[in-house]
Design a binder for these strands. Structure first.
Lengths: 160, 160
DNA sequence: TTCACTATTGATATGTTATAACATCCGAAG
DNA sequence: CTTCGGATGTTATAACATATCAATAGTGAA
């Protein structure tokens, strides 16, 4: 598992620029289209650096004239999720940018219940004990959701 | 990790009776009240043996005159979840009975995307690699969601 | 260029999941 | 018996998500 990333990102500006450029390159190479709405949606997720609901995203898009109805946000988010640039956090019904897009990975999330910051780590859960249990049961795993809720260091300090 | 339970429960009648009795005993000993709505809700989850949405439960309750408005179902489900008799499946926004209530455990679920049957296993994820990552990041895990979606043996056979 | 094709966007409506807020009931403790 | 807290009834609405169909724009072939 790689180190989780998210609670101490020193330079959002750089990671935003880098990841946007990577997304653009990825789309170019696959013939996908990173349209203005999609690009801006990804940028919003990168800048906010926490889990945002579809309607949160929609409000920000709408403020810039990039669409005002729910499908606009959901389509953009679906695209980003399918392309691997973002993930859906099921426990929050919210979305967050992927910190290492392009790589095929099974994300695991550490979600702060106070500030909603999300850190992304990797698991290889299907190779571990859950995978063993699934095989024993004859179950074929296609997708996994791993989400841990709790307190991030900053919020824990603030509470103490 | 215990074996997953759920894809081959031979005798629903027995497990229903047993688990209802256990829930009753647990409530008695803790001074909780397993009221008619709560008891019936648990029974519904046990009998169906798959993930049910709150409105599915509500429809069944309503058909028996046990309330007809959303809060009825949500309150009953919240009670069952808090008491450890049921779990919420975040990936489905649905609820399922716990197969070994009373024990403090971190459930992991195998969810068939076709028949929506849910098998429950245990993980000790906080003791594994995710726990290591969380500790390294200074993150305090309070609750974990582990859900694997895929195909159960029956549905896999049927598809083949 | 023009055409046909496909992906994307725009717009309206609706479906689904969940909770807020407040009134009322009812049983247990004092 | 009263009072107090948990449970329920009821209305309304918030929050999350998708179906549908029309309009538009980019792409490649004739």
């Amino acid at each position: 598992m790689s180190d989780p990333i998210g609670f101490q990102c020193a330079d959002h500006g750089t990671c935003r620029t880098t990841l946007l450029a990577r997304a653009q390159a990825h789309c170019d190479s696959l013939g996908l289209r990173l349209t203005p709405v999609r690009r801006r949606t990804l940028e919003i997720l990168l800048v906010e650096h926490r889990a945002l609901g579809a309607y949160d995203v929609l409000a920000l898009l709408a403020a810039e004239g990039l669409g005002s109805q729910p499908p606009v946000a959901y389509r953009a988010l679906d695209f980003l999720v399918k392309a691997g640039f973002a993930h859906k956090i099921e426990a929050l019904n919210a979305y967050t940018a992927c910190v290492h897009p392009g790589l095929d990975h099974t994300p695991a999330f550490l979600i702060c219940r106070t500030c909603e910051t999300v850190a992304e780590a990797d698991t290889a859960l299907t190779k571990g004990r859950l995978g063993d249990a699934a095989r024993a049961a004859g179950f074929t795993i296609e997708r996994t959701v791993v989400e841990a809720t709790g307190l991030c260091p900053d919020c824990a300090d603030r509470a103490a």
